[in-house]
Nucleic acid binder design. Structure first.
Length: 980
DNA sequence: GTGGTCTCCTA
DNA sequence: GTAGGAGACCACA
C-alpha cells in the first residue's frame, strides 16, 4: 500500500444487526429463508464497489475487506467477566444470515476477516493503523461509536445507510471531544448494552465537559476531589477503578496478530458469474440484473449456486454463544448500540404480516375461475406457470383416509390466489348402484400426469405447500416422488397457536379468510350412502379440490409471515417441517405383527373371560351386561348394597378400577372378579382382536398414523392403530408386545430416554441437588425420599421410595394435594404436608412453578427450552377449578414439551447419522414419547446401538445443552417385549 | 348413525 | 396432578 491508496474496512457484524433492524424482513421466495440483512448487505457492497464516488466518501477503494466478530467471547471477557453479559441470542430469522453474509462476501471476491478472541473492531483498528503507517487512507464502513476513537486525518467513518461520513469535526460536533479523547469519554459514560460499567451518573455531556476541563481521564481521577458537585465527586472517587477498567475494555487493540496483510486486501475486479450465481441463489433479481450489466455477464447462462444454510448450532457470529435465559418476547433487542432506523417506508414484521393478512382475506373466492385439467398440454402450461411464481399449493385427493392404501383420485394445485386447478386422474362413471362403473373419459392417466409433475414437485426452486402435507407426501412417496422443498400450513398454524384454535383447514379458513369452504361431507355423503371421492362428478370435484388448494395457498401467504412476526420461525423449521418426511417414511415402513400370536391370545382371553362371566353371574345372582357400568353399578351398590360407592359427575355409580380395588381389598370376591374380567376383555378387544385388522394386505405390516399437530405440548400422537399405548405394565399385557416382531435376519432395537422429564425439570428449574444426582448417576427417587424423609439411600424401604416417586411424578404434572392423596391412597392433609416438605427441600421447584404460572398469566402461553409455545388462555379464567387445571397444564407443558422437542431433534438427526455411518439399512419404525424403535439387520445391531444412543443423548445440544446429562437405554431382541 | 360418558391402555 | 387414543355402552336422532 502506498500514498493515495484507499482502504475500505466494512464492519460486517455491525452491519448485520443494523440492516436486520432497519430493513423490512425479506424472505427468499422459494422457501422462506430469511434474507433481509443479506439483501441489504449485498446492495451496500455493490454500491461501495461501483459508485463510491457518488457517495459522501467520494473515493473508490483500492483495498477492501469485510471484518466480522468471530464470537462474543474475546480477551475482554478475561478482563471483565460481565463484558457483554447482557446480550441475548440473536433473533431466529437472523441466525441463518450470519453465514450467508460471509458467503456473500466471498461471492463478491472480497476478503472475509475474523479472528477468534478478538472483536471486529480490534481488527479494524489494526488494519487502519497499518494503512496509516503505509501512507494510505482508510474508510471504516460503520457508524459504531466504539470506532470513533480511530478517526484521524487519514481515517474516517462512513455510514452507508445514512450516506454520512464522520471525520474529526463531526466527532467533535457529536461528542464534544476530539477522537483521541473518545476512549476516556467512553470510560466515563460506560455502555449499558455492552455492560461496560463506567461511572454512574455521568453521561456523554458531563464526560465531555469534565475532559475539557481536566484534559484526560487520569488527571480527572487524580483531581476528582476538586469537583464541586457532591454526588459527581463521590461517584468519581468511588468508581475510579471501574472507570480505569472501562477504559481498558473500550480501548481497541491496534496490534492484533493478523494473518492477512494489507497486500492481501488489494481489490480485484468482480468475478461476474461467481457473484451472479450467488445472487441468483438468493433470488435477488434486480441486483442480479445490475451486476450482469456492469460486469458484462449473460445472467441467463449462469446457474444459481448451491448455497448451504448453516444450522443455528453451527453458526457463529456475534452473540451466537450466549446462553439464553428465559426472556420474555419483545424484551430482547440485540444489536449493540444500533439505533433502528424506522422511517415510515420501513415496516415491522408484525405490520407486514398484518397487512398481508388483510390484503389476502379481502380477495374474493370464485369457484367459476377454477380449471379442470384434462389434457397433458394444459397440465404442462400450469407446470410452467408454477415455475414462474415459484409456489405450488397442492392437495392429493384420495379415495381413503389411509394414505398407505389409498388410490389417487386426482391432484389439485394452485399457483396464486384464485388461480387453481384440479387434475382428475381416476374418477369413475356414476352408475345406478352407487358403486360406479368404468373409468370416466377425458382424464390424464396417473402415470403420465405424475411424470409431468415430478420435475416440478422435486424442483428446489419451487416451494410446495399443503395442509397436512405428510399425507400428500406419503401418497406421492409411494409413487416414487419425494416432494421438496415444502411448507405445511397445518404445522405453521400449530407452531403459532397450539392450544388456541384447531388447525384443520376449515377452522383456518374461517379464522383467517372468514370463508367456509365447500363441505367434503356434503359432497360424499355419510354412513351407508357415503361414496369415495372418485365417484364425485368432475364439476363438483373440481370446485372442491381447486378451492382447497386455493385456500391453502392463501393461508400460506398469511401464515408464513406470521411466523417471522411472532419470532418463532426456528421451531417450525427445526422441530416441525423436517419431521414430515421422517415420519412419513416411518409410517410407510410399518412394523411386523404376528397374526398367529395375537389370535392365540384372543382365544385364551375369550376362554378366561367366559369362565369369569359364569363366576360373576353366580356371585351376582343374575345375568347382566358386565361391560355396562350402569348395570354393574346397579348390581353392586343398588342390589347388593356394597359400601364405599362414589358417584361420577353425571350422578352414576362409579365402578372404576380404583373403587373396585378398594372393595376387593375388603375381601369381597365379586369386585375382584370384575377387575380381572375387565383386564382380559380390554386386552382382547382393544389389542388382540383389533390389531390384526390393521395388518396391511400387501406389506403384511401395521402402519400407524402419527399426528404432528394434535397435542398442545408438542408430543406426537398415534392412531389407527394407536401404537403408543401397547400394554407393558402387567405380565399379561406385556405378552401382546411379543407379537411385534422383526422379520427373519433382523432385530428390533428399542432405545428409550431414562427419566427425561425429571432431567428436564432439574435443568429448567435449576435444582442443584437434582442436577448433581443426575450427574452422579444416582437413583433419583431414592434420593428424593432421602432428602424428604431423612432416610439413608442404602437399605431404603420400598414404600418410602414409592411415595417419593409418586411425588416426583406429581411435580411434573403440576402437583395438588388432592391428586397426590388419590394416587398414594393417603389423607389429603398428609399429602399436603408431603408437598410442603418437598418445597422446603427444593425451593427452586416452587420458584419455577410460580414463575411459570406468572409468565403464562402474562403472555397466555408457556415456552419449552427450544421456544415452542403452548397456549393456555384459560389460565385467566375466573372459575377456580378451570384456572387451577390450566395452571397445572402450564407447569407441565414446558417439561413435557421440552422432552418432546428433544426426541423430535433426535428423530430429525438420526437418519443422517445412520447414513453417514453406512447404516442406512437401519430403519426407525415407531416413536413412543421417550422411546424410539428401530429395525436392523442382525449383524449391524452392535454398531448401531452406540450410535443411536449417542445421537439421542446429544439431541438437546449444542446450543441449548442441558445442565444434566441425558441417559438412553438401548437393547435389541427378536420382539418388542424383550427389546424394551 | 352420531355423540356423550365411562373406563383403561401408554408416556 | 400432565399428555393422548380407543372400545363398549347407551340415549338420541
Amino acid at each position: 500500500m502506498k500514498k493515495g491508496d484507499h482502504l475500505f474496512l466494512v464492519d460486517g457484524s455491525g452491519y448485520i444487526f443494523r440492516a436486520y433492524h432497519a430493513l423490512p424482513p425479506l424472505t427468499r421466495k422459494s422457501d422462506g429463508l430469511p434474507i433481509g440483512a443479506v439483501a441489504g448487505f449485498c446492495n451496500m457492497l455493490w454500491k461501495l464497489l461501483r459508485d463510491a464516488r457518488n457517495t459522501d466518501v467520494g473515493v473508490t477503494p483500492t483495498h477492501f475487506a469485510v471484518i466480522f466478530d468471530y464470537s462474543s467471547k474475546t480477551f475482554r471477557n478475561e478482563l471483565y467477566g460481565e463484558y457483554k453479559a447482557n446480550r441475548t441470542a440473536p433473533p431466529e430469522d437472523l441466525v441463518p444470515q450470519f453465514s450467508l453474509i460471509r458467503k456473500a462476501t466471498q461471492a463478491f471476491g472480497l476478503p472475509c476477516i475474523e479472528m477468534e478472541g478478538f472483536e471486529a473492531d480490534d481488527l479494524i483498528a489494526t488494519y487502519a493503523r497499518l494503512a496509516t503507517e503505509a501512507g494510505g487512507d482508510t474508510t471504516i464502513v460503520s457508524s459504531d461509536k466504539d470506532l470513533m476513537q480511530l478517526v484521524n486525518d487519514t481515517v474516517s467513518l462512513y455510514d452507508p445507510m445514512k450516506d454520512k461520513e464522520t471525520r474529526i469535526p463531526e466527532v467533535i460536533e457529536k461528542w464534544g471531544v476530539p477522537p483521541e479523547k473518545m476512549i476516556d469519554l467512553q470510560a466515563l459514560t460506560g455502555d449499558s448494552i455492552d455492560n461496560v460499567p463506567g461511572v454512574p451518573g455521568i453521561g456523554p455531556k458531563t464526560a465531555a465537559q469534565l475532559l475539557a476541563e481536566y484534559g484526560d481521564l487520569d488527571t480527572l481521577l487524580s483531581r476528582a476531589h476538586e469537583i464541586k458537585q457532591q454526588k459527581r465527586r463521590e461517584n468519581l472517587i468511588a468508581h475510579a477503578e471501574s472507570a480505569r477498567l472501562s477504559r481498558e475494555l473500550v480501548t481497541l487493540k491496534k496490534d492484533v496478530p493478523i494473518k492477512e496483510g494489507l497486500e492481501d486486501l488489494v481489490l480485484t475486479p468482480t468475478n461476474g458469474p461467481k457473484l451472479i450465481g450467488f445472487l441468483k441463489a438468493m433470488e435477488f433479481a434486480s441486483l442480479t440484473r445490475r451486476v450482469a450489466e456492469a460486469t458484462d455477464t449473460d445472467a441467463s447462462a449462469v446457474e444459481a449456486a448451491y448455497v448451504e444454510v448453516q444450522k443455528a448450532e453451527e453458526a457463529h457470529g456475534p452473540d451466537m454463544d450466549v446462553t439464553v435465559t428465559a426472556t420474555a418476547p419483545g424484551e430482547s433487542s440485540s444489536g449493540g448500540d444500533v439505533t433502528p432506523v424506522r422511517g415510515e417506508e420501513i415496516d415491522t414484521p408484525e405490520n407486514l404480516a398484518k397487512s398481508r393478512a388483510a390484503e389476502i382475506s379481502s380477495l374474493p373466492i370464485d369457484h367459476t375461475a377454477y380449471t379442470c385439467i384434462r389434457d397433458i398440454a394444459t397440465l404442462q402450461q400450469w407446470v410452467a406457470l408454477a415455475r414462474e411464481t415459484g409456489t405450488l399449493a397442492l392437495n392429493a385427493l384420495l379415495n381413503s383416509n389411509d394414505p398407505m392404501q389409498a388410490e389417487l383420485c386426482g391432484i389439485s394445485i394452485a399457483i396464486a390466489p384464485g388461480r387453481a386447478a384440479y387434475i382428475p386422474l381416476a374418477h369413475k362413471e356414476r352408475a345406478e348402484d352407487l358403486w360406479g362403473g368404468g373409468r370416466l373419459d377425458g382424464q390424464i392417466a396417473e402415470k403420465e400426469a405424475l411424470e409431468v409433475l415430478r420435475p416440478l414437485l422435486e424442483d428446489r426452486s419451487v416451494i410446495k405447500v399443503a395442509h397436512n402435507l405428510k399425507q400428500d407426501w406419503l401418497a406421492l412417496y409411494r409413487r416414487g416422488i419425494e416432494v421438496a422443498p415444502f411448507d405445511d400450513i397445518m404445522l405453521i398454524s400449530y407452531v403459532l397457536a397450539a392450544g388456541v384454535n384447531a388447525h384443520d383447514l376449515e377452522s383456518l379458513a374461517d379464522k383467517w379468510l372468514s370463508h367456509a369452504p365447500m363441505s367434503f361431507k356434503d359432497l360424499v355423503g355419510s354412513g351407508k350412502a357415503k361414496i369415495t371421492f372418485d365417484m364425485v362428478d368432475l364439476e363438483h370435484s373440481t370446485s372442491f379440490a381447486a378451492e382447497h388448494a386455493d385456500i391453502v395457498l392463501r393461508l400460506w401467504e398469511i401464515l408464513k409471515p406470521q411466523l417471522v412476526a411472532d419470532r418463532i420461525v426456528s421451531v417450525y423449521e427445526r422441530l416441525e417441517r423436517p419431521l414430515i418426511p421422517v415420519i412419513a417414511r416411518m409410517e410407510h415402513r410399518g412394523i411386523c405383527v404376528d397374526r398367529n400370536i395375537l389370535s392365540r391370545m384372543s382365544g385364551d382371553f375369550a376362554q378366561q373371560a367366559a369362565a369369569m362371566e359364569d363366576e360373576i353371574y353366580e356371585l351376582a345372582g343374575e345375568r347382566f351386561n358386565i361391560g355396562s357400568p350402569k348395570q354393574l353399578g346397579d348390581i353392586l351398590f343398588g342390589k347388593m348394597m356394597l359400601p364405599g360407592g362414589s358417584k361420577t359427575k353425571t350422578g352414576q355409580w362409579s365402578t372404576s378400577a380404583q373403587v373396585l380395588e378398594e372393595l376387593a381389598a375388603e375381601g369381597l370376591p365379586l369386585p375382584r372378579k370384575i377387575v380381572d374380567w375387565r383386564q382380559v376383555t380390554k386386552l382382547k378387544s382393544t389389542y388382540t382382536d383389533a390389531l390384526p385388522g390393521f395388518i396391511h394386505p400387501t406389506t403384511k405390516r401395521v402402519h400407524t398414523s402419527y399426528s404432528l399437530a394434535s397435542t398442545t405440548t408438542g408430543r406426537l400422537s398415534s392412531s389407527e392403530p394407536n401404537l403408543q399405548n401397547i400394554p407393558v405394565r402387567t405380565a399379561e399385557g406385556r405378552k401382546i408386545r411379543t407379537a411385534f416382531i422383526a422379520p427373519q435376519g433382523r432385530k428390533l432395537i428399542s432405545a428409550d430416554y431414562s427419566q427425561i422429564e425429571l432431567r428436564v425439570l432439574a435443568h429448567v428449574a435449576e435444582i442443584p441437588q437434582l442436577t448433581q444426582a443426575f450427574a452422579d448417576g444416582l437413583d433419583i427417587h431414592a434420593l428424593t425420599a432421602s432428602e424428604m424423609f431423612g432416610v439413608p439411600v442404602e437399605g431404603m424401604p420400598a414404600e418410602i421410595r414409592r411415595r417419593a416417586k409418586a411425588i416426583n411424578f406429581g411435580i411434573i404434572y403440576g402437583i395438588s394435594a388432592f391428586g397426590l392423596a388419590n394416587q398414594l391412597g393417603i389423607p389429603r392433609e398428609e399429602a399436603g404436608s408431603y408437598i410442603k416438605r418437598y418445597f422446603e427441600r427444593f425451593p427452586g421447584i416452587r420458584d419455577y412453578m410460580e414463575s411459570t404460572k406468572a409468565f403464562c398469566r402474562e403472555h397466555g402461553y408457556v415456552e419449552t427450552i427450544f421456544g415452542r409455545r403452548a397456549h393456555y388462555p384459560d389460565i385467566r379464567a375466573s372459575n377456580p377449578s378451570i384456572r387451577a387445571f390450566n395452571e397445572r397444564a402450564a407447569i407441565n407443558a414446558p417439561i413435557q414439551g421440552s422432552a418432546a422437542d428433544i426426541i423430535r431433534r433426535a428423530m430429525v438427526q438420526i437418519e443422517g447419522a445412520l447414513a453417514d455411518a453406512g447404516l442406512s439399512e437401519i430403519q426407525m419404525l415407531l416413536q413412543v414419547h421417550d422411546e424410539l424403535l428401530f429395525e436392523a439387520p442382525e449383524e449391524l445391531v452392535e454398531t448401531a446401538i452406540p450410535l443411536i444412543r449417542h445421537v439421542m443423548e446429544q439431541a438437546a445440544g449444542p446450543v441449548r445443552a442441558l445442565s444434566v446429562p441425558l441417559k438412553v437405554d438401548a437393547r435389541a431382541a427378536d420382539n418388542w417385549d424383550e427389546a424394551h
